[in-house]
Design a protein around this nucleic acid. Sequence first.
DNA 1: AGTCGTGATCATGGCGTAGT
DNA 2: ACTACGCCATGATCACGACT
Length: 303
Amino acid sequence: MAKGKDISMRQLRYFVAAADAGQFSQAALKVHVSQSAITAAVLQLEQALGVSLFERLPYGVALTAEGNKFAQHARHILDTLQDALSEPLFLGHSMQGVVRVGASYTVLGYFLPALLARFKRSYPQVEIDLLDMDRPSIETAVLSGELDLGLAIISNTQDLMRFEHHVLIRSRRQLWLATQHPLNAVSSITLADVAEHAYIMPTVDEGEVSALRYWQSQGRMPKVAFRTSSMEALRGLVAHGFGVTILSDMLYRAWSLEGKKIESRPLVDVIPPMELGLIWRPEAQLSEPAQAFRQFLIMACAS
DNA sequence: AGTCGTGATCATGGCGTAGT
DNA sequence: ACTACGCCATGATCACGACT
């Protein structure tokens, strides 16, 4: 760094885009600049750092070991900046109070923990009183005012008009199956194909009701071999080839508890996505901390 | 003067295809 | 099965312009 060149946020943005895309030209499309701008930014970074960040391949680029490490830092820097820009820090540190939040099982397990940690950093004095409840109980408690906010799979909610709501996440539903499962050899999989094979029915968070809804609308029924409310059991059964299931990407993990691989494949039939959302009482005057938490979730999920 | 972006152009290497 | 060829997408480089 003899010339004392500074590293800019722009360079980091382009670098991360390139690392994500694996191709400079694709990264260029994503950040709306020309390919040469990406090349230049990466070159400048490499010069400033004194290491090569990418291995140049015939088709695209691949991160080097150093590049991979630096990419983690770069992502963290960009995230931190994003947080700083999107969160009202000036209010956050002084704000105090309790927010009563009800969340259903999968929301609690797969969605909330990371977000709660981030919220805590910005609003250290706000306490989130988190309750594990099923969706109908959350809805009743929100309407009666026992809860400030409810977090649930609102694609299951019958009459959403009773609430103010905001959809935080739409998650595509896909087929989960073992690597060696015969369906994995089929190029485009339909519900009719799935109906031929043993099906593992998840019962947690109304999994059965929501599944049967789209099965019935296609005029078919799954061949249910097992029912379980345990996600880990479900993963284990799928990974060992005892059956397949259809669940949202939010819940998907590539490995079962024993470390066996689980594949996920799209279905050609139209299956409604899982919608995770926030509900609150229509005419309720939310407390400041509750408003802050609501706003935080909406902002965090928008990006 | 310095920064950032663009488009034209170049060299490289994989891939498909036609011919043997 | 092998080879030679041309096509194509890729990243690198350069000259130039806009902006501050």
